[in-house]
Write a protein that binds this DNA or RNA. Sequence first.
RNA 1: GACCCCGUAGCUCAGCUGGACUAGAGCAAGUGCCUUCUAAGCACUAGGUCGCAGGUUCGAAUCCUGCCGGGGUCGCCA
Length: 577
Amino acid sequence: MNLFADFSEIIRNELTAMAVESGIALPLDTTRVTAEPPRDSSNGDLSTNAAMVLANQFGVRPPELARRLMSRLRARDGVATMDVAGPGFINIRLTPEVWPRVLDSALRLGDNYGRSTLGGGRKANVEYVSANPTGPLHVGHVRGAVFGDALAELLAVTGYQVTKEYYINDAGAQVDTVARSAHLRYREALGEAVGEIPAGLYPGEYLKPVGEALAKEFGASLAAKDEAEWLAPVRERTIAMMLQMIRDDLAALNIRQEVFFSEKSLHDSGEVAETVADLRAAGHVYQGRLPPPKGEVPPDWEDREQTLFRATAFGDDVDRPLLKSDGSYTYFASDVAYSRNKIRRGFKELIYVLGADHGGYVKRLEAVAAAIAGPGQVEVIVRLCQLVKLFRAGEPVRMSKRSGEFVTLREVVDEVGPDVVRFMMLFRKNEAPLDFDFAKVTEQSKDNPVFYVQYAHARTCSVIRNAEGEGIQPAQPDFSLLSDPAELALMRRIGEYPRLVEAAAVAHEPHRIAFYLYDLAGDFHALWNKGKESPHLRFILRNDVARTTTRLAFLRAIRYVLANGLRILGVRPADEM
RNA sequence: GACCCCGUAGCUCAGCUGGACUAGAGCAAGUGCCUUCUAAGCACUAGGUCGCAGGUUCGAAUCCUGCCGGGGUCGCCA
């Protein structure tokens, strides 16, 4: 049961019926009609703007339309009282039986409470992380990794057919560089004194095991050969090992993408060449010159003719080069081929989770999809994640990327655990910068949102355990016994959950789930605390079986919502703290 | 020069994709209470011209335009 969606439909149906009676031309545009909880619950349980939005179409003033709509809604199930407020809101107070139905539905659906069919089975591809396979994931990757994973789950529970994907940049110069770096470590493993790692190569210690593995596999046979001979096999081994390390790191965060897509495979299969040929055949490719960039012109800029994709015809700011001057394909060319591959696999939504420094990619990705699939055929959604700043008890953690001394994803996860990392990464809008303080996020106090939410879940579990321990038998609950304002607030909150999940999915904003859970936990803790002052509000009342069993059922409903929300975020609901 | 993101209480941020009568939390501050069915507390108070100026609208923190301030990006790299 989705209270607000149900009412929204009832209201739309009534409006349509009214339009028919009044001889107003159908179809009636009800897209802007809402049914939502009012900000202030003293205005009722549900309010609609229908009269204000449709007054023009009906040719009457909003209050008049509101009265006509109200007279039809009066007979509906669940409506207790209604009034017209302000410029024409209809505020509806629901009958007390509605909340029991909400709780019944949460209990009946259990793990499925909050799922929806919004996506209608549309195929969505969520690509995230996609870090170059040249080293371990560092803290800069954490946010996108968690965000992408939670977004994928959010879409999955709202009826999309989701594929979680990682694009491996295994075709460019950087993987050659990491292969050379690994070869040096290989020589080192063979006993050679290699000294300082030269500038331009990867200095990280993590390549030592790669060198040792190469030495074990190849003996000394690669040491004497020319680079032309050893580069390919060393590169292949190195990438495979780097990728394994990356997958292990992601697994530590409970992230398991089902597709790891190789850029190199697009070249090997000829898809890049095909893609360029297709674009050419469609008239989207030409030889031309680009104007120099405004502002800071690179010192090595030279005006030259190149093979360009007419991205500007699809909304991009400039046309994009497909071929380098040596005739090989640009990174962009394989990117286009990759988009084409996704589109051919049937995805209708291409979702990219990128760092904020990739903001410039949005238009070109949209342009590519439009050129290949046809305008409006697939939806490109890019979400940019801002930087994470690390702190240790208030002091910023210093990092130097140049020397290879960066904080790795693994270090963060090992120190505070995957649940804390995941929750904190999602407890902020993705495009806002985020501060992550190791001390604060592990603190066991009300000021730590992860703890606060986890503890709410653990608390529900513990009370249920205690009740079982006391031999209290589950029985048919009578939710009409729940009438305290704190209890009603919780019921309302539970009723909002399905609507909230859908709204978060539409907006592609998993952080809304995290904030909702924080509020829900707050409502629950508030009710709990009220039980200290007012013992009759406690969950277990030894002399009142009816209330106790009812409240235990209530508790189970709360627990489902907490657990379901946490599951979307990929945070394990703790049974005890 | 262009494009993207951000600018809401002292601090950190929400604000449900335009809604109202008092713009919300948390921290910090002030006052009082508390030793608790699961413990790492509770209640109340104070605090904001929603960066600035216009505009659209019955109605704007939310949409449009222009400024100001902060961050990011801008041809063969990936």
